[in-house]
C-alpha cells in the first residue's frame, strides 16, 4: 500500500567519507559559481552562490513582508506543526484501533481509499473556503498530506505484530486492554515511527505548496519568500528560500531518525 521512499542514511560512514562528500559538494558550488562567472547570466535569472548567501544574510536582519527571515521560518514551522500534530493526533490512534478492531477497519478503509488518490494540494481551494485563507487552510492541506502515511503505518504496525506474542499474553491471562497497551503498541512502534517520518516529509512538501497556492491571505512563510522572489525578479531570494526549506526539511528528518534510534533500542 504505502511505498516507503527507502532511505540510505548510512551513519556508519566514516569521517573520511563525510569529508569527501563535503569536498564534492564544494566542487558543485564552485561549478555553479564558474557557470555564473563565465556565462554572466542576469542575476534575475541565475545569481551567484555569494549573491544567494548575501540575500539570505540580509533577510536575517532586514524585514520583508511581515518580518525578517526568522519570522518566516517560525511561521512556516508553526503552520507545519499545527497540521502535522493534528494528523498525528488523529492518525495514530485511528490506525491502531483499525488494526485492532475489525469493524472499524472495514468502515474506515473504503472512505480512506476513496480520498487517498486526491493530491493534498488539490484540497487547497476548498480548504480556503472552509477555513479561511491562512493558517486554517494551510493546516488542513498539511493534515491531508501527513495523515495518510501516519494512519497506514500505525495500522500496519498493529497488523504485523507477531500473533504468537498476542497469543502468549492472552494465555497468561492479559485482558484485551492490557494486550493492546503493553504488547501490541510497543511492538508496532518501529512501523509507527516510520510512518511519522514519511508523514513529516509529505507534510513539509504540502506546507510549501500550500504557502505558494493558498498563501494569498498571508505575507509570511518560506513559501511566501519564494513567491516574492519570483514576483520581484529576485532569483537570489527564491533560491535562498528554497535552500532554507531544504535544510529545515533535512534537519527535521534527521531529528526523527535520531529519535527513532533512541526509542527503538531493541532493533
Amino acid at each position: 500500500m504505502t511505498e516507503v521512499p527507502a532511505d540510505d542514511n548510512g551513519t556508519s560512514g566514516s569521517q573520511r567519507a563525510l569529508a569527501l562528500a563535503a569536498g564534492v559538494a564544494a566542487g558543485w558550488v564552485a561549478l555553479w559559481w564558474l557557470v555564473v562567472l563565465v556565462l554572466k547570466p542576469s542575476p534575475d535569472f541565475l545569481p551567484s552562490p555569494a549573491q544567494v548567501v548575501q540575500r539570505i544574510a540580509l533577510l536575517a536582519q532586514a524585514s520583508l513582508g511581515d518580518g525578517t527571515l526568522w519570522l518566516h521560518v517560525v511561521m512556516s514551522l508553526y503552520r507545519f506543526l499545527a497540521g502535522f500534530a493534528l494528523a498525528a493526533a488523529v492518525g495514530i490512534p485511528l490506525g491502531i484501533l483499525m488494526g485492532y478492531f475489525r469493524v472499524l477497519d472495514r468502515i474506515v478503509t473504503p472512505i480512506f481509499e476513496l480520498l487517498r488518490p486526491i493530491p493534498p494540494i488539490a484540497w487547497a481551494p476548498f480548504a480556503i473556503i472552509w477555513f479561511g485563507g491562512s493558517l486554517g487552510s494551510q493546516a488542513m492541506v498539511i493534515f491531508t498530506a501527513a495523515f495518510a502515511p501516519i494512519l497506514i503505518n500505525s495500522y500496519r504496525g498493529v497488523k504485523m505484530v507477531e500473533p504468537s506474542l498476542v497469543g502468549a499474553a492472552r494465555t497468561l491471562g492479559a485482558r484485551p486492554r492490557v494486550v493492546l497497551l503493553e504488547v501490541v503498541l510497543p511492538a508496532s512502534v518501529p512501523m509507527l515511527i516510520a510512518g511519522v517520518r514519511i508523514g513529516l516529509a509529505a507534510g513539509w512538501m504540502a506546507l510549501i505548496a500550500a504557502e505558494i497556492v493558498a498563501g494569498d491571505g498571508a505575507s509570511s512563510g518560506l513559501g511566501y519568500l519564494i513567491l516574492v522572489g519570483q514576483r520581484t525578479l529576485q532569483a537570489n531570494l527564491t533560491i535562498g528560500a528554497m535552500l532554507v526549506i531544504g535544510v529545515l526539511g533535512a534537519a527535521i528528518d534527521y531529528g526523527v531518525c535520531r529519535l527513532e534510534r533512541r526509542v527503538v533500542t531493541w532493533q
Binding site: M205, I208, I212, Q230, D253
Partner: peptide, 12 residues
Amino acid sequence: LRPIPPPAWIPL
C-alpha cells in the same frame, strides 16, 4: 535536491 519539495520549484 531531495529535501526541497517539488512545488518549491514552481516560482523558479
